[in-house]
Design a protein around this nucleic acid. Structure first.
Lengths: 146, 146
DNA sequence: ATCTCTGCAAAGCTTTTGCATAATA
DNA sequence: TATTATGCAAAAGCTTTGCAGAGAT
């Protein structure tokens, strides 16, 4: 697991370090507010604008990716190394897809459409094994859940 | 090409028909404002709130998908039949991927991660052949374009 | 000492909502 | 005629920005 560093030319502040730390600890891309509260829990006081400004800088430096998940209207931020994933629709847990199956198809896309492929983003939505189990059990007691 | 109809239980208004029409005519998912101006061009006067309300309804009815593209902060709306695509980073043109290569890998994901797969979304970024050509030509004249 | 970063409050934008009026069935 | 849809203006929510003071090199 490679340690992330603050990019050249930017100063080392406790806020900046803390943001990177939180991003490293969470597999799921986070809302700016999530980061804000996670830091508050850790006793680090920070303003939302500082968070936004740093995320913006980290994005421009290529360390962070900003993306919107399906059916959400708030941006999420995650380290760019974690890009292809499965998302559990129930618990929002994210599982990284290590060997992205898509790589094998770039060639095909280039041939068929003539595009130079620069990058891609895949989101797969489903139910994780744990939630599947939970749902199965919850179904019995009542007829009208949800 | 199947014609889209206004869902059961909803009234037929000229605004509603016009929104669906514009969505059918555009392969690229559009911002609410894009739709607003496209309709203005056609001489159809409509308010942004009507557009948002209808897109929301169409989304809930499953006809429309709302999504954010990488590096954009405004939602785009497109017909749900057009879901996997290539996006040209230069001209923003979108090319639909007809046979989604991903289908073949669902089984593998289910096996490896135990997820029930409900759906997925793929965005591929690249440069289309036309822009590739244009860029090649533009590179010669000046050293500082952009 | 200089230059960058942070926090606060205010501004900006997209999207949503309330309400009266207009249009559809 | 009853019900749903529209338009306008105002509200809401996330994100950005200006500025003065604090912090890093």
């Amino acid at each position: 697991m490679k340690k992330l560093a603050i990019p050249q030319g930017y100063k080392t502040t406790k806020q900046r370090k803390a943001i990177l730390e939180v991003l490293e600890e969470n597999i799921t891309p986070m809302h700016a507010e999530d980061i804000y509260f996670k830091l508050k829990e850790k006793g680090i006081d920070i303003s939302l604008s500082t968070i936004y400004r740093n995320l913006d800088m980290l994005q421009k430096q290529g360390l962070v990716i900003k993306a919107y998940m399906l059916n959400e209207d708030k941006a999420r931020f995650g380290l760019s190394s974690k890009k292809n994933y499965l998302i559990c629709q129930e618990c929002k847990k994210i599982v990284i897809i290590d060997n992205c199956p898509f790589e094998k198809f770039k060639e095909e896309l280039i041939e068929v459409h003539g595009f130079d492929i620069l990058g891609h983003s895949i989101e797969v939505y489903g139910i994780c094994p744990e939630c599947k189990e939970k749902i199965k059990n919850d179904e019995k007691p009542s007829q009208e859940n949800k």
